[in-house]
């Protein structure tokens, strides 16, 4: 596969390492039911066919954590974002709502 890193440009997937589902959010460790929430976070994964947002780390490049939107059956990649931008946007929207 080829992944277009928003910093480095197009690279082969051998420069990246894969982590998996990027929709998982680390639960609030102080929240009620934290143990169950963490068990889900650590162990439970969906295995969808089709579009999947997933973490890739550009280990041999700029060392950015990326969120890649990839079709798991065709390997079509439709979007690549910096994970820190996504996290910042989520935090901003959380603060707006809060």
């Amino acid at each position: 596969m080829r992944i277009i890193c928003p910093y480095c440009g197009e690279r082969g997937n051998e420069e990246f390492s894969y982590l998996g589902d990027a929709s998982l959010l680390r639960p609030d460790p102080a929240g009620a039911g934290a143990m169950h929430a963490f068990a889900d976070y650590v162990y439970l994964r969906d295995n969808p066919r089709g579009s999947h947002r997933e973490f890739w780390y550009h280990a041999a490049g700029c060392r950015s954590w990326l969120i890649v939107t990839r079709n798991t059956s065709t390997h079509d990649i439709t979007r690549v974002e910096f994970a820190c931008d996504v996290a910042a946007a989520r935090m901003a929207s959380f603060e707006d709502e809060g």
Binding site: L19, F55, A59, W65, A83, A87, A88
Partner: peptide, 14 residues
């Protein structure tokens, strides 16, 4: 190193 980058960029980018 990869784990620390994950923590800094994904978990606690603030």
């Amino acid at each position: 190193m990869q784990h620390l980058e994950y923590c800094a960029q994904v978990l606690w980018s603030d």
